[in-house]
Write a protein that binds this DNA or RNA. Structure first.
Length: 255
DNA sequence: AACATACGCAACCGCTGTCAA
DNA sequence: CTTGACAGCGGTTGCGTATGT
């Protein structure tokens, strides 16, 4: 009623964000915050819809984001929370400061699900997979209905594909075009992650925000990468052995 | 070296709940 | 009370990179 439509998609840019666009968005939000996402792209001089700006900010540019692989502890929280909540990624993310729902969702779909299946555990039910399908119904989700899903069904028979269960050791360079070689928020110290990931960015004190992240040098980014390598390859406590003791998971299968 | 395939992640799509006009 | 914009969420997809042949 009288309100303008959210975004008229004509003439709006889509697809991967460039460094210049990121710079504009971060610069604007750091300076002004956001009162209304619809206005952000216009005021920031971006040919994007507000939704796209919000997504880019919350999933990638927010200064309090952690980057890199989830730690063992974080994975354990994800698994534990998923067993309780199902695919409520935003709720799970709320328990992991500095992590986004999108990141957790991706990590679940690409790593944890495969890992669980490899262990003979159904990632949807968190119960051992039985060839006997008369097994008791799943204990989760605790909601009225399974989240409009279907996506829980594997796209292919992953169990049969041994290669599929071997993760690629790939520090955050995958998105790899020039504009995303920098990993903006990866340069932020984990100590910046005190606020809830679901907290409104506008609630943060601008003075506390770090510089737009791509303004950090590559040295910092590479340092983060080395931390990933060290953490991932160090062979420390395995989340899955901890969470599913006796499940017979062999970490060497992964490395 | 060139090509094919698999993988992972960023971004988009579409839906829902909330709230303002 | 109704309508519609907005914000947020979860599922899906497209593309770039890594790996295999």
């Amino acid at each position: 009623m009288g309100r303008q439509p959210c975004c008229e998609k004509v003439g709006l840019k889509r697809g991967p964000w460039t460094a210049e666009e990121d710079q504009k968005l971060v610069g604007f939000l750091l300076t002004h915050g956001h009162c209304c996402w619809r206005l952000v792209p216009k005021l920031a001089g971006l040919l994007r819809c507000g939704k796209s700006c919000r997504l880019r900010w919350t999933n990638y540019l927010r200064p309090d984001l952690k980057r890199g692989l989830l730690s063992d502890e974080e994975e354990q929280v994800v698994i534990d929370m998923h067993a309780q909540l199902g695919n409520r990624w935003s709720k799970i993310a709320a328990r992991l400061p500095g992590r986004t729902d999108n990141e957790i969702k991706n990590h679940w779909n690409t790593h944890i699900k495969k890992k669980l299946r490899r262990m003979g555990i159904d990632p949807a039910t968190h119960r051992p997979v039985s060839s006997d399908q008369t097994q008791a119904p799943p204990p989760v989700p605790p909601r009225d209905q399974e989240p409009r899903d279907g996506a829980e069904q594997p796209r292919q028979e992953e169990e049969e594909d041994v290669k599929a269960i071997v993760p690629m050791i790939q520090p955050h360079t995958a998105a790899g075009n020039d504009s995303s070689v920098f990993s903006p928020a990866s340069a932020i110290s984990p100590s910046c992650s005190s606020s809830s990931p679901s907290a409104s960015a506008s609630g943060l004190d601008v003075a506390e925000w770090p510089e737009p992240t791509y303004l950090f040098g590559m040295d910092t980014i590479m340092d983060v990468g080395s931390v990933w390598d060290a953490g991932f390859l160090s062979g420390g406590v395995d989340t899955f052995d901890h969470y599913y003791p006796g499940a017979g998971f062999d970490q060497e299968d992964w490395l």
